[in-house]
Amino acid sequence: MANSNKLELAFLLFDKANTKDPNVEEYLGKAYPKELLYAIRMTEKLNTFKPDASEALKLTARCQHICRWEIPRESYEMNRAGYLTWRQDLKKFHAERASSILKEVGYDEETIEKVRFLLEKKQLKKNEDTQTLEDIICLVFLEFYFEPFAHGHPEEKIIDILQKTWRKMSNEGQAAALELPLSKKSLTIINKALNS
Results as ranks from 00 to 15, higher is better:
155 E>L: 08
105 V>A: 01
35 E>L: 00
144 F>R: 03
104 E>W: 10
170 S>L: 01
33 P>W: 10
46 L>W: 00
77 E>A: 15
118 L>S: 09
67 C>V: 07
168 K>W: 02
158 I>D: 08
59 L>W: 00
77 E>P: 14
4 S>P: 07
13 L>T: 01
69 W>H: 13
87 R>P: 12
173 G>K: 02
84 L>Y: 03
35 E>D: 11
121 K>D: 10
1 M>Y: 00
26 E>S: 13
139 L>E: 09
126 K>V: 14
193 A>E: 11
189 I>V: 08
190 I>Y: 01
170 S>A: 06
196 S>A: 09
30 K>I: 05
137 I>Y: 04
28 L>I: 08
147 E>I: 03
127 N>K: 07
117 F>N: 02
79 N>T: 08
1 M>P: 11
95 A>E: 07
99 S>E: 08
161 I>V: 15
60 T>A: 10
59 L>S: 03
85 T>V: 12
64 Q>N: 14
53 A>G: 07
104 E>N: 13
1 M>S: 12
150 A>C: 07
124 L>F: 10
192 K>P: 02
123 Q>N: 12
47 N>R: 09
13 L>P: 05
81 A>R: 15
156 E>K: 13
190 I>E: 03
88 Q>C: 14
55 E>P: 14
52 D>M: 13
95 A>N: 07
161 I>K: 12
187 L>W: 10
36 L>G: 04
78 M>W: 12
70 E>F: 10
112 I>Y: 06
13 L>G: 06
42 M>F: 11
117 F>Q: 11
12 L>F: 15
115 V>R: 04
175 A>K: 08
92 K>Q: 15
146 F>I: 01
82 G>S: 01
18 N>C: 04
2 A>M: 15
30 K>Y: 08
68 R>M: 07
46 L>D: 05
67 C>R: 14
30 K>F: 05
146 F>E: 04
96 E>S: 13
